[in-house]
Amino acid sequence: MPQARLDRREHITGWAFIAPALILLGLFMIYPIVWSLWMSFQVGKGMNLSFGGLANIERLTKDAVFQRALGNTFIFFIVQVPIMIGLALLFAVALNDSTLRFRGLFRTAIFLPCVTSLIAYSTLFKSMFATNGVVKNALMTLHLTDGPIPWLTDPFWAKILIIIAITWRWTGYNMIFYLAALQNIDRSIYEAARIDGVPAWARFRYLTIPMLKPVILFTTVISTIGTLQLFDEVQNITQGGPSDATLTLSLYIYNLTFKFMPSFGYSATVSWVIVVLVGILSFIQFLIARDRRSA
């Protein structure tokens, strides 16, 4: 959206309107972050800290647990985000048909999970996926498995469980964004394509997807950040286990600060790894976005 040059008064208003937010962010975000950047150069236990230069970075390169957490975070990112976004798109396209019955009902139902309280959600998932829980009973009744799946006690299945849990909770949330965007799309383009005999899959691929690209980018960014910060689910459902299979970077930071012998400098270093990672990912996404514009 092109904007005329601002006059002096608008400039002042611009700052005045942002000021309350900036002051609060400065106090409660920037200051603690800068503080933690300083901390990331400190080594020591508890309150006995001293300047350690790059010692924490060096420790990071040898830390197998950190590498596991980083790996898990990436697996969640690479596997879960596409599944969730794919499902959300599918549901949104299905629900976008104005002749469909019970649209409101379906939409509300699919959105409902993201309104649950975290505590309800984690308690429920733990009990439903317990060794003899209702999910096992259901799968065995349907003859899909002939024994209990070790959802919470096997490293592989625990990862799957976390992916199921996040997907359950956030698919509806993303779907609403797509649904809203789809309702903005000119229907006549579809009808023209349909009359020209373009099959449904091609309409989806060559019309829907390109027009939704900005929203897909938006939700991808939000989901990327969500995955890198993933904490609630793993802390409350699996505690990062078994065998660190669901340990994420955020949970590792929490453990370093609150569970282990407190080494705050090191946990600050791990936090900054996330900042740098997001910086890189944002830069990549920026490049993709620029490509799109010049094309």
Binding site: K126, S127, A130, T131, T153
Partner: peptide
């Protein structure tokens, strides 16, 4: 019997 939380353990 594999269990995975305090509640499941006591249960």
């Amino acid at each position: 019997n594999p269990v995975s939380s305090w509640a499941e353990y006591t249960g």
